[in-house]
């Protein structure tokens, strides 16, 4: 029933339904995507430009609406202060109904980010809601900079250190920020 264009309204559009090809991002994508996910992503982009969240920015990488790049500046008062962290955002073709995939491209010492850059954030997995937007997701990620979630870790070792020896953890994190994110 659902086409790869996904989630779309029934429109008299032979090709546009398939415009939002997902998969491994950089395949073909129509220049003017009118599918439901395309419209939604375009609107989010506009909203992000109008009212960007603090310390965050995001936008399409190239002309592919479904592949974004985002930056988050490490908030002050944290060991990530001053670092600029890049993330890849990949929107699935049935985007608002499935969460976007966010991957840290900058290495970071954080208990909720594994070595490959994948995040263990519940709203990007089970707690995803179509009502969430990329703005809110970025805000959520920024909030785990401020307050890591050691009980839902991607790297339990870091979480353990965070819980047992906070100072040591912060020191290492600061070092990593200096080395990789500046």
């Amino acid at each position: 029933m659902m086409t790869p264009g996904g989630s779309g309204r029934f429109r008299p559009l032979p090709t546009a339904m398939y415009a939002g090809y997902s998969g491994t991002a950089s395949s073909w994508v129509a220049k003017t995507s009118v599918s439901a996910s395309g419209k939604r992503i375009q609107r989010e982009m506009a909203e992000l430009n109008v009212d960007p969240p603090a310390d965050c920015s995001a936008g399409p990488k190239g002309d592919n609406l479904y592949h974004w790049i985002a930056t988050i500046i490490g908030p002050s008062g944290t060991p990530y202060e001053g670092g600029i962290f890049f993330l890849d955002i990949i929107f699935p073709s049935d985007y608002p109904f499935k969460p976007p995939k966010l991957v840290f491209k900058t290495r970071i010492y954080h208990c909720n980010v594994d070595t490959a850059g994948n995040l263990s954030v519940d709203i990007l997995r089970d707690s995803w809601s179509p009502a969430l937007t990329i703005t809110k997701v970025l805000q959520a990620i920024r909030s785990i900079f401020l307050k890591p979630e050691p009980y839902n870790p991607a790297l339990p070792m870091i979480a353990r250190l965070y819980l047992s020896d906070r100072e040591k953890h912060d020191e290492v994190a600061k070092e990593w920020t200096l080395r990789f994110a500046k």
Partner: peptide, 23 residues
């Protein structure tokens, strides 16, 4: 009280069927 269109509602019901507003 979360409102959405019938199309999106159908898509959600085809999936996990949880309200986007309150989950």
């Amino acid at each position: 009280g979360f409102r959405l269109c019938l199309f999106c509602h159908k898509t959600i019901c085809d999936g996990d069927g949880r309200c986007p507003g309150c989950r």
